[in-house]
Design a protein around this nucleic acid. Sequence first.
DNA 1: ACACACTCCTGAATGC
DNA 2: TGCATTCAGGAGTGTG
Length: 269
Amino acid sequence: MPELPEVETCRLGIEPWLSGHTIIRVEVHNARLRWPVDKEILLLKKKQVLSVQRRAKYLLLELNEGWIIIHLGMSGCLRVMLYPQFPNKHDHIDLILNNGFMIRYTDPRRFGAWLWSDNIQKSSLLDHIGPEPLSDNFNNRWLYEKLRNKRTPIKTLLTDNKIVAGIGNIYASESLFIAGILPGRAASSLSEKDAETLVQSIKKVLLRSIHKGGTTLRNFLQSNGNPGNFIHELHVYGRKNKKCRLCGTLIQIVKHKQRSTFFCPKCQH
DNA sequence: ACACACTCCTGAATGC
DNA sequence: TGCATTCAGGAGTGTG
């Protein structure tokens, strides 16, 4: 499932092929994604790409006269390919470039989105999102202030984009393991010191995963077609009944808000 | 404001 | 073997 490190991996992969180049046209094979692909994208002709940015789990392509907002959903990925290539069943969108390449969007579950925005600052998709976890705006003070009045399990809070952007199920479990904090603890039970440890753990896990090209569970691929390598460094996610890499205790699974949470009952308190 | 459940989707895994 | 059921979850929307 693409979370911040996977989306950032994607951004890093496509940026050199897009930035400063021109999208000649867009070939849409299936416009039925989470929402219908915006018509501005369908009709797009010969637009230069000024920059390729990321906010939370959204990719933002800055064009001359507006922005393409891309979300990879659960199973989306973008790959750089030579043009032309016959589209397979789950290849929904191709950005045809003026450099002989294309960027191909593949998404079996079609939970992703391709939307247009004239003004990214006013986009209702982005305007409520909290601080980027790798920025200085995400710090001990911010997190502790958000935690201290909430009885929700800390794990649930970490996947709330208003608290911190871009963290999903994988990195919530992994960050809490690194921090040594049990995921089911009420957020308000964390001390200032806990919040500080958690902030540092989140930054460390996300940076390490970006360095390894993200986590590939099923569908995610880097833009060069290779899977991400962080899966080999997961401590708890997807490791139910496997031995903890640090202490050998069996990893346990619980549900928070109908989502799986993995933890080590000995390493986390 | 808050904290939930519901919903979209497909493919892999599981059950009988 | 084959068909039906369950599970995976990002995040907007709806409910109490």
